[in-house]
Design a protein around this nucleic acid. Sequence first.
DNA 1: CCGATTTCCGCACAG
DNA 2: CGGAAATCGG
Length: 759
Amino acid sequence: MYRLEDLNLVQQEAVRHKDGPLLILAGAGSGKTRVLTYRIAHLIAQGIEPWEILAITFTNKAAQEMRERVGFLVGSEGRGLWISTFHSACVRILRREIDNLPGYTRDFVIYDSSDQQTIIKTCLKECNLDEKKFQVRAVGAVISDAKNKLLDCDNFEQQAADYFQRQIAKVYRAYQKRLKNSNALDFDDLIMLAVLVFRQNPEILGRYQKRFHYILIDEYQDTNYAQYSLVKLLASQYRNLCVVGDDDQSVYGWRGADVKNILDFERDYPEAKVLKLEQNYRSTQTILEAANCVVSNNEKRKEKLLWTKNPKGQPLVFYVADDERDEAKYVTERIQFLHNSGRPYNDFAVLYRTNAQSRVLEERLMKEGIPYRIFSGHKFYERMEIKDVLAYLRLLSNPADKVNFARILNVPKRGLGGTSLARVMEYAEEQNMPVLEVVSEADYIPDLRPKARKSVLAFALLMQGLKEFADKEMSVTTIVEEILDRTGYRNLLIADDSPESQARLENLAEFLSVASEYDLKAQSRQDEDEFGMGFIPGLSGFLEHVALVAETDQIDQQEAAVVLMTMHSVKGLEFPVVFIVGMEEGIFPGTRSQLEPELIEEERRLCYVALTRAREKVYLCYAGQRMLYGRRQYNLRSRFLEEIPYNLLEEKDPSGEPPGRQYRKPKFMELRSRVSAPGVHVSAFGSPARKLGTPLVENAQEEFLVGEKILHDKFGQGIIMGVTGKGRQVVLTINFQGQLKQIATEYVNLTKLKTKESD
DNA sequence: CCGATTTCCGCACAG
DNA sequence: CGGAAATCGG
């Protein structure tokens, strides 16, 4: 049972509000999940049937948590409730309705981003495009972007303005054709096609509109245009739409999220009720004040001020490190110290801007024997061995799957390389047959060398055997075991006793346990209604499950380990003690953001997110020099540091006076003298606190500073945006009227122009 | 066709 | 610097 008295007044209002649009602006740590779950419980208590409620979150983790908490509040009353991510909701819709779109059938498969890359690569070749000029990643991003804006091939082609775009339009078309050919959808298709089905079939839309009387969307600030449109369509009949979000925590602009969706909610729904949750239950006053001060530097935001009844707490600690190793050493020492005084290891999180920064920290923690859990890098389902097994499974469930066929034809090694693969694929295309079927006809495939032919036939036999086995076997675990055995995959790994193979075997074991978990769940849920959790027992259900749930590396908050992760992935979590490392211009904010005020604002929101994860204590670290990408960088302090009032910060500087004194105005002189190595000349410059982002560089003849104007023989006038390298090998990033260029000073003649802001 | 060597290039990331 | 892809040589 739930009790409204457990909530504060605004929260209660949000829960009680029944009909009509509702916008809840929920600051960090203001109990928004609690409001959402109570609201669902309350609706059910008011007599709304659970199947009339649709709740959408962004991550599986959030959906999972919400399901658990609602289950706790309403028990079995919740049967039939839809709580899912955008993507799994769309899959469920498409499984029933996609037959209405030409060329697709309801047994479609879902391709992940690496499958997507593979296809794009072939499409680029097909269109005779130079992979240098049209990079797979970039083209993929453009296509994804288009889909997030609901532009299909035709729309995209129409609005293509230049040569580049027109070429990409061709690739987009080819790419989409290939997907259709394999009856596959990529992640972006899931949303786009769901919208398309609704747009083209009003009667289907009507059915879903009627079904979902009450719609709740979490993290609304992270929605892109396609998701926004989907929600709008579904909610347009009853307008009982409740969205929750925080514009200050919008940090996914780079993947299509549009803050405007939340900022313009009141324009879309003029009758909307707007509530602000501003009481924070998580952090100390000091931490909140610091976070508020930082984020209030943003222009485009809804004004709100978080407050708390929590104690004032301790000041944030600012540590000036010599370099990244010193930084890691400091973090490790602090953790060890605090641990010795009674804190468990899972009280700590270390946050960084880029994954590349994690290595040093990891090394140090390992050296000191502190248990840690790293949440970054390539994900579980993207590891080679897992992808290989998955490829077998997918091929068994969809014999037309060319991408996965190509992946495993020669895995493990069967002496079938690119040439043989091409011949087989070619033949399949000619005969218009599923790839997995043509291998049995290897005798008819032209131009195959006898050796390859024999190998292909052996492969055909192997797959045939596996297929027969898989068709009558319900347990995914057993199928996986059989694949590992019959292909010899496992034995090869056992035979090779390198540590990598060891790790691979462990990952496969992990995968097997995921499979058996699924088998168990599928067994117990078989009788549940179709709108329950959407479980399909057997192989195809499992494949869908892993495609949509890519989070095996889940952070187990119970595990007694320090957590290392990026500031992006920490969103939605909280820790008693938070370390933020790399508080440097060029790192955070990153070089690419420094030009664009809009991007700076997004970085600043990221800083806000990071700070507000902490319950009690925040440590901020800055390193005067840092090795990154094999180059030594000298960065100035992050501007975000300067945005935190001095009275909230306590500076620890090992090279300076004894610790404990107050942070002072930015100490440019000290910074400079500490950075400069012996024999290196550094000119004096006195910059105001505002003008930041000015790395210093050692250079015997001449030195360049960020912000300076220069004249280039060829490109003309420009402004220095970044400096890396040292001595003779200085590389400058220069902005020539908006064009960014990398210039090595060694080879080019640059003339310095007088900077007008010489203060 | 395979393994070794060189070259290239770098944010963030859920589904 | 380090991982992935391209290229080389057997």
